[in-house]
Design a protein around this nucleic acid. Structure first.
Lengths: 272, 272
DNA sequence: CGACTAGTTGAGGCCAGTCAATGTTGGTGG
DNA sequence: CCACCAACATTGACTGGCCTCAACTAGTCG
């Protein structure tokens, strides 16, 4: 464990605890008792659990948020097999969830942005079934699941929000099954880029221009492709004028064309 | 609408209503007010929503089950885009969920057996996002979602069961993403057969010998393969002594070998 | 500077898709 | 009951898309 004591932004609120979950390198998790940030003032509350809640209800939810956690880049928020107690709402940053296989490779199951909630996979059997790791420095709100459940009993709107969030996770996963089950490499990539752009858009960022936080290898793992294929298709899209790529900076130049590629035409030949 | 009035097992309890959702052929749905069957006496209650519930709680749940629905083979229980009001618990039979694409092909997202609950994908945006069709004559219990939600507020165990069932659906989907994203054809098939056997086992049937209810085409769609490939791998497994296939009757002869194929070794060469 | 990680590009091979012909099964009507 | 038809399944020959292996470049960090 090298660098175990290297200071990484020592507890901003004077309270820091290494949660004993650490990534492959010097990354670590720092728990912060944050006294100022509440759902009411959170920039992503419209995408997150409190969406549509009355202010009173929101305060109650607020009170449940035990703590914020800062996850440094490459560190793990939780690992597959760990006991499930919390859902985590992403405040800033980005996470990926993945399962590591016997041969060391990992399959990326999903990537998650601000407002998203991760950890639903742990409800089933009281243990998380995947790893969640930060793709960049990330802050999450820890939501004690049993408390949330309790509160949901008296707040139907919260209950409904919870259900909807899980359901939408499921819908997302189903969409991914479709991508993996029926699409060719170019279609997958187009779908991926459009989806990414759409999620940035809903968060108030540009739909057309953004920074990938995933490596080629992670994108490939997510899409069921090899990293070389990902790279090649980026190049192909680039020279076709569909996108502009410079390392991890991507600009979508022809949304319409990308939609034709990714939006439909599954298992079709045609694209060329 | 051909055959709109052709009688198909006219309402056993003297009450039959065509729910206006019908399959590609003469199949249709018949609603039955069933006065006798309750969760307490249901053979799959241990796999279904009422698992672990106190008898009192179970009765309350019982009262919510508006009606049973009989779905004839090939008929649709619901279609993508239809308004979401019910979850459906499968009492007997088998369903597949799938999405139909522009070119007419459908991608099978999952198959569901007795005790399973389908329809979670509709919670998200009040509309189902997939079709659910019967692979054989099937009976389901219609669970009005809002009533279930209400009841869950006073029955924490029911609330928890609901959450767990959704979560386990998600886990299943994630597993499928792994299959589709990282496994080769033989690995997919082995995984599929083992999974199927396991699900039969948990329902008290033989793990090793069962009847496929899916066509080669549907299996292929589910696994991201073409039907020819499915057929070929069945033959290959057969001559390797791993299984015995006769049409849709399958006998697993070498579980250990199948587990080696499907259990791990993702994206590995090796298998030969 | 050397070591390392990430990314690009090329050459070649293989797995699974495609196309096509034939066999099998099950349901329907004469 | 059998003949017929349509749906389902099997098998072969060929093709091609993606993987594999490999070389090389660029950027980063000690």
């Amino acid at each position: 464990m090298p660098h175990a004591s290297k200071p990484v932004r020592p507890g901003a609120a004077g309270y820091a605890a290494d949660l004993a979950v650490r990534g492959r390198s010097e990354a670590r998790i720092i728990s912060i008792r944050n006294l100022e940030i509440h759902c009411q003032t959170c920039s992503v509350r419209e995408l997150c659990l409190p969406v549509g809640l009355a202010t009173e209800a929101m305060s109650e939810l607020d009170r449940l948020i035990g703590h914020r956690i800062r996850v440094t880049k490459h560190a793990a928020l939780y690992r597959a097999g760990a006991e499930f107690h919390f859902l985590y709402a992403i405040h800033t940053g980005m996470l990926k969830t993945s399962v590591v296989m016997d041969d060391g490779r990992d399959q990326v199951m999903g990537y998650h942005m601000s407002g998203d909630i991760v950890g639903f996979d742990g409800i089933d059997n009281e243990h998380y079934s995947a790893d969640a790791a930060a793709l960049e420095d990330t802050e999450v709100c820890a939501l004690p699941f049993s408390s949330i459940e309790n509160l949901a009993r008296t707040l139907p709107s919260l209950q409904r929000n919870l259900s909807k969030l899980i359901s939408s996770e499921m819908t997302q996963d189903r969409g991914m099954m479709l991508v993996l089950g029926s699409m060719k490499a170019e279609e997958r990539m187009a779908t991926f880029l459009l989806n990414l752009g759409d999620r940035y858009r809903r968060r108030g960022y540009s739909q057309n221009e953004f920074e990938l936080r995933l490596t080629r290898d992670e994108i490939g793992s997510y899409l069921g492709l090899r990293l070389e294929t990902v790279s090649r298709i980026f190049s192909r899209f680039h020279s076709a004028g569909l996108i502009q790529v410079q390392g991890r900076t991507v600009k979508l130049l022809d949304l319409a064309a990308l939609k034709v590629l990714g939006g439909q035409g599954h298992r079709n030949p045609a694209i060329s």
